[in-house]
């Protein structure tokens, strides 16, 4: 198991955001977490990447307990994240944003830059533009490209489809598939359950801080409860 989250509890002050969540991600998989607003999806990702402290529970990554490892060290361990709201550095150019992604690494990054530009030709066209002046879709591409610059073993994606036009959502999702095909494990948090379940191998359904269902993604697509709650009544295909 590459990433194993074991019965974690996370609190914001006295409010429990996660009440004993366990998630497993195997090497090479795409796993998705779906759930409504406020269910705790983002908190799970933040806890994995070290932006939020655990109250109890353990996070194992690559066989090591990383529960108390500071966030910046988890990057070196192999956890990359494109955060909620994209987290682009607005005053840096596209190239500088990408290079920030490789901050923890040493050496020459021209090859990695080229790889990111191959994956996202749009970024190559805008490589000298300030990150803050890009459109939402371009920023999302930049956030994913930047996370990949750290050569992560697992890529955490927090709502990559948020605020994007349907066409762009399609594009982003096919790129995620491509990234996974090239060997990076993906943990995807999504509100767009329909798209996420089509892409992922396995899925977890999160409700107010607890996992209520976990199954292969295809099965959940046909699950009447899931369909009613997350896919909308009209989702027939």
């Amino acid at each position: 198991m590459l990433l194993e989250i074991n019965d974690i509890h996370v609190h914001y002050g006295k409010i429990a955001a996660l009440k004993g969540v366990s998630v497993e991600v195997d090497e090479g998989e795409i796993v998705t977490l779906i759930g409504a607003n406020g269910a705790g999806k983002t908190t799970i990702l933040k806890t994995i990447s070290g932006l939020r402290p655990l109250s109890t529970g353990r996070i194992l990554f690559d066989g090591r307990d990383i529960s108390s490892m500071p966030g910046h060290k988890r990057v070196l361990a192999g956890i990359g994240q494109a955060p909620e709201g994209r987290g682009i550095f607005p005053g840096m150019t596209v190239t500088d944003n990408l290079l920030m992604g490789a901050y923890a690494r040493k050496g020459d990054f021209s090859k990695d830059l080229q790889e990111a530009f191959d994956l996202f030709p749009r970024l190559a066209e805008r490589k000298d533009q300030m990150g803050g002046t890009m459109s939402g879709g371009e920023q999302q591409m930049l956030a994913i490209g930047r996370a990949l610059m750290a050569k992560p073993k697992v890529l955490l994606l927090d709502e990559p489809s948020m605020g994007l036009a349907p066409m762009l959502v399609q594009q982003i999702f096919s790129i995620i598939e491509e990234i996974n095909r090239r060997g990076t494990t993906v943990l995807l948090v999504e509100q767009n359950a329909n798209q996420a379940l089509r892409l992922a191998h396995r899925a977890y359904v999160l409700e107010t801080g607890s996992i209520v269902k976990s199954a292969p993604a295809r099965e959940l697509l046909d699950d009447p409860q899931v369909r009613a709650a997350y896919l909308g009544a009209g989702a027939t295909d």
């Binding site: 070290g50 932006l51 966030g71 990057v75 994240q81 955060p83 987290g87 005053g91 901050y103 996370a147």
Partner: peptide, 11 residues
């Protein structure tokens, strides 16, 4: 520019 994102970059 973004403290959380900086931490996520390994800073």
């Amino acid at each position: 520019e973004d403290e959380d994102a900086a931490e996520l970059m390994g800073v």
